[in-house]
Amino acid sequence: MKRRFNDLLRRLPVWAVWLAGLLPLALLIFDTFAGNLGIDPVRDIEWRLGKTAFYFLIGGLAVTPLLRITGISLMKFRRAIGLLCFTYAVLHVSSWISMEMGFLWSQMAKDVVKRPYLIFGMLSLLILIPLAVTSNNLSIRRMGGQSWRNLHKLVYLAGPLVALHWIWALKVFPVTPGFWLLVILLLLGARLAIRRPLGRGRAKGLKITN
C-alpha cells in the first residue's frame, strides 16, 4: 500500500504540483473579474492570498513528519510547496501595499515597526526571502548540504509567526488560526519526538548511527 502510493507519487511530475498549487490563484483572479468577491473585494483578495500562503507553509512543514510517521514521501515536491508558499506570500504583501494601503509608504513604514500583527507578518516574509532565493540545486551545492539545511530550519520560526500575524490582526481571538498554530506546534514537536522513520528495524538504525 505504502509502496504503491510512493510509486504513484514518484511518477507524478513536479510541474503538476505547481499547476495544482496555482489553482487557488486562478480561482481568485476568476472570482475578482466575475464579481464573485464580497462587498469588500480588497479584504477578500488579501485574505485569500494570505491564507493560501499559510496553508502551503503548513504543508511544507508536514512533509518530514509525514515521511517519518507514515513512510509516504512528498520530498520531491517540497521545494515546489515552499516556493508556492513564497509566491502567495509576496502576492499577499503586494495586495496589502497596493490595495489595502494605497501605497501610503509613510504610514506603512510607521505601522510595520509598531503593530504586532505587521511585525509578525513582515518577519515571516523576511525569513521566507532567503529560503526562496536558495531554493535551487546550485545554492545547495554552493552552500553545502549542512549549512543549507541549517538556513532552511528558519521555516520553523516562520510558521508560528504567521499564525500570530493572523491572530493579532483580529479583534477577538479567532479559532481558525489558533487551531493552525496548534497544528504547527504539533508538527514541530513531531520532528523532535520522532527523529527517524517509524517501523524501521531498531538494529538497523543503531548500525547507521554507530
Binding site: 469588500d40 489595502e100 504610514q107 510607521k110 505601522d111 503593530r115 500583527y117 493579532w168 490582526a169 479583534k171
Partner: peptide, 10 residues
C-alpha cells in the same frame, strides 16, 4: 493593534 490615521471607504 492598528493605526487610526486613515481609513478605507467600502
Amino acid at each position: 493593534r492598528w493605526s487610526q490615521a486613515t481609513e478605507r471607504r467600502i
